[in-house]
């Protein structure tokens, strides 16, 4: 394998579920420890990884320099440490940069997960400890970034996420990528079928028995009960809920105020229609 194999998504769209599945699947379907084994599919924007491959400390760079540096570093990671990585980067060229953070020539293939933005809004609010209205606003903000260091250092380097619609289209419409799009709702509705497609796409064991075993090891109830017992280190500091909170689809119908649902439909309607989120 050469190049980066990306599990890409807007935040709170099912990325961790896929990582948990892969963490188990790559170890023959064994049970996983959330706080240890998820590291097998590391965050590409992790500061230690980026510093090592860039040969300098991102803590000494401006956001614009980070945006200029990231594509160069992505190529070095692709060359020196090709593997599976998680990313929330948008695939458009960030303001002030010349290339996307992860240029196409550094990428082997991409699994892109998309989730109904109305459920994402609720999940984001719980994750970051925001109001749902703030989530809805953030999801329409083309300047939305994660990993900014202020007033202290963030353990990730800066990622330009952009708006939900831009994020989705930046990946789904990218030219020259081997990309498997997956709707979170479809993963939930028919996990065996969808994860089998995933394994086939990634050249992993796609036999029914193997896929079922890894699905079992990474099921929502297993992960949520593990979090309840031992905690989960990827939970956000400001979060007001467990990381593995609802795990379903369509929660917005009861949990999202109608005016916010309308606002989302107004902001993201074209891309929602494209993905059949009605």
């Amino acid at each position: 394998m050469s190049g980066l194999t990306l599990i890409a998504s807007y935040p709170k769209s099912g990325n961790t579920w896929l990582r948990a599945f892969l963490a188990s699947h790559l170890r023959g379907g064994q049970p996983i420890d959330l706080n240890v084994d998820l590291a097998r599919i590391a965050n590409l924007s992790a500061r230690i990884l980026q510093d090592r491959h860039a040969g300098l400390e991102h803590a000494d760079l401006t956001p614009q320099e980070v945006a200029l540096l990231r594509p160069l570093t992505s190529r070095r990671v692709a060359h020196d440490q090709p593997d599976f990585y998680k990313t929330h980067d948008c695939n458009f060229v960030p303001p002030g940069a010349r290339e996307p953070a992860i240029p196409a020539d550094a990428i082997n293939r991409v699994v892109y997960i998309v989730r109904d933005p109305r459920d994402v809004a609720i999940s984001l609010a719980h994750h970051f400890g925001w109001s749902v209205a703030a989530s809805v606003e953030r999801m329409a903000d083309s300047a939305f970034r994660m990993g900014r260091s202020s007033p202290c250092l963030n353990m990730n380097v800066e990622q330009w996420v952009s708006s939900w619609s831009a994020h989705v289209e930046s990946w789904l419409d990218a030219a020259g990528l081997r990309l498997l799009p997956l709707r979170y709702e479809d993963l939930l509705a028919d996990p065996l079928q969808r994860f089998t497609e995933l394994c086939r796409f990634l050249d992993l064991d796609d036999t029914r028995q193997a896929v079922s075993r890894s699905l079992e090891a990474s099921s929502f109830s297993v992960l949520a009960s593990q979090e309840a017992r031992t905690g989960f280190r990827e939970r956000h500091r400001a979060s007001n809920a467990p990381f593995f909170r609802a795990g379903g689809a369509g929660g917005w119908r009861s949990g999202l105020a109608p005016e916010l649902a309308e606002r989302l439909a107004a902001d993201q309607g074209r891309v929602m229609a494209r993905l059949a989120y009605r």
Partner: peptide, 11 residues
């Protein structure tokens, strides 16, 4: 740098 090798992206 004439004859320079890239050691890291900016060096």
């Amino acid at each position: 740098l004439p004859g320079g090798r890239t050691i890291s992206p900016w060096l």
